[in-house]
Write a protein that binds this DNA or RNA. Structure first.
Lengths: 291, 291
DNA sequence: TTACATCCATTGATAAAACCGATTTAGAAA
DNA sequence: TTTCTAAATCGGTTTTATCAATGGATGTAA
């Protein structure tokens, strides 16, 4: 049993497709096949069922998987400890972010990178489920998201701030003069909204349904940046958290009366695992810049 | 970084002598040297200081060590989970025992081995400190000892039973007829006692000192079995826990009045780590046979 | 001080094994 | 049926883990 084999096993278990997994691991399919077989031989039990051309985890495989993950994660923590001793002169920092928080992230990215140029930063955008998956398998060090999960066995959250949903408009837009807008009036405003899968959209849908409002949705897209660019043309408005719209000086936010959906931005850590110094420093920067 | 290298590193860190460590690992010294170097290169920091012909852990090495241990331990747990799925038809069971409890252990060893002949059992005798060390580095699955440690971060104990210290004699010995004996009278009886390092001896010394009794110690030895054989000659008596003397039908135990030292036998587990089925079954057998 | 023993690093050679491309095998799909 | 696709297997190549022998450095005993 070697860490290499555990890495191979985990990827294969995640993708349930040796060919794709091998490609992902930058090895050949035959190598992967052999290494898995070797691991199975050593353990004395198959980890995968080969049903025809499909593979799926055996009972043994499912039971083994969390331990394989744990093993690899501990090894990574060991590496992180060493990196930390180098005083942030090296190492990697992997951050998982929901799209809506990119505006919060960017200035800190710039600041951190300037202060610790030797630390390589990998930012992973994704939906909440994607990100939780990545956190679980320690492919990111922490999450920046609107997830509100009660602390459980695997994760622990720190609240950052609350951000209400708001209407975002360009000054040239007719609506731009209003001090606030009633939720009912949303039906008359041409909207471009974040696509399904965005937490914002999820909350919004719920609130609109409760108020029996049929919004006038012109477009849905899954990239906040593009979405805001569309709003900047003055032709559309959008609805998102105040935090997400922040930093776009050209745009205006208008409170929506009666829409009391508030997103809770938070940092989520894996429980019981080493927090590398780079991650701690980074999150502190985030907390600081919010003030 | 591979598990093999972590294994090498841990052993080297424990022994602080590459030559001996290599011998222990059944590899050549040059191999060990190279593998350590390779690990250090990958981590980007030396794990050992080479001062002349000595080696010692660097700061990085000390910090890395617990993670290396954790990593290996998790990998072992993974293996154990698989073994458990085989229904005790395979695998290893490593038991740490203090000498005084061997008599408790033996019948269970016989029973377990008969019931699960496929499970290989390794019994490690040792002093309490030895055993705790082994438990810490997961070289045994659990301990059977008289250690009374309050539950802490690393270990958790289950009480088994209390066993008072008692005088053990052969029927041919003049003392054998007495129903009980006063602690003061111990000074007249030729004793062979467990050597220093045995918890029994530790407690006994304390009790004798408290009562101002100078015992007549003829011999000290660090093997309970030999000790009892000496007692069986009828020439000597000994003092140990009732439990330790149990099973020697030829010998008689005589309560010592005024000696209220009671040893607490217990099972000690590492906290937060997987308990293999074989270990659970075995400890249940122990609990059962005590009734 | 010299000679010796001990310990780790290095070297060069060898055996092991990780890896790959090509091919085979076997379900699934057409 | 044929075709397609995914995993296993085969033969060969490269990599690397390993060893014995050696060198260098450092304590130790004469």
């Amino acid at each position: 049993m070697e860490l290499r084999q555990l890495r191979y096993f985990i990827k294969s278990a995640e993708l349930l497709n040796f060919t794709v997994a091998a490609h992902n691991l930058y090895i050949s399919q035959s190598t992967l096949s052999q290494q898995i077989k070797q691991l199975e031989d050593e353990l004395g039990m198959p980890l995968f069922d080969r049903i025809g051309k499909r593979v799926r985890l055996t009972e043994a495989g499912s039971q083994f998987l969390p331990f394989a993950r744990l093993t690899l994660s501990d090894a990574e923590s060991g590496r992180a400890v060493i990196d930390d001793l180098k005083g942030l002169k090296t190492g990697e920092l992997r951050i998982g972010v929901t799209y809506g928080l990119s505006t919060l992230l960017t200035p800190v990215l710039v600041q951190f990178s300037a202060q610790y140029p030797e630390v390589k930063i990998i930012v992973e955008f994704g939906t909440s489920e994607d990100l939780l998956d990545k956190l679980k398998s320690t492919r990111v060090d922490f999450l920046l998201s609107f997830l509100e999960l009660q602390d459980n066995d695997m994760f622990i959250s720190q609240r950052l701030y609350e951000s209400p949903l708001t209407l975002v408009v360009h000054p040239s837009n007719p609506v731009a003069d209003k001090k606030s807008i009633a939720i009912k009036d949303l039906k008359d405003i041409p909207l471009v909204l974040p696509a399904k899968g965005f937490h914002t959209r999820h909350f919004l849908n719920q609130a609109l349904a409760e108020n029996n409002v049929q919004p006038n949705i012109k477009m849905e897209l899954n990239d906040i940046n593009t979405l805001l660019q569309l709003v900047e043309t003055g032709n559309f408005c959008t609805i998102m958290t105040v935090a997400a719209a922040k930093g776009r000086q050209t745009l205006k936010t208008i409170p929506i009366k009666g829409l009391n959906v508030i997103s809770q931005a938070s940092i989520t850590w894996p429980k019981d695992s080493y927090r590398k110094k780079a991650a701690l420093v980074f999150t502190e920067m985030i907390k600081k810049q919010m003030k």
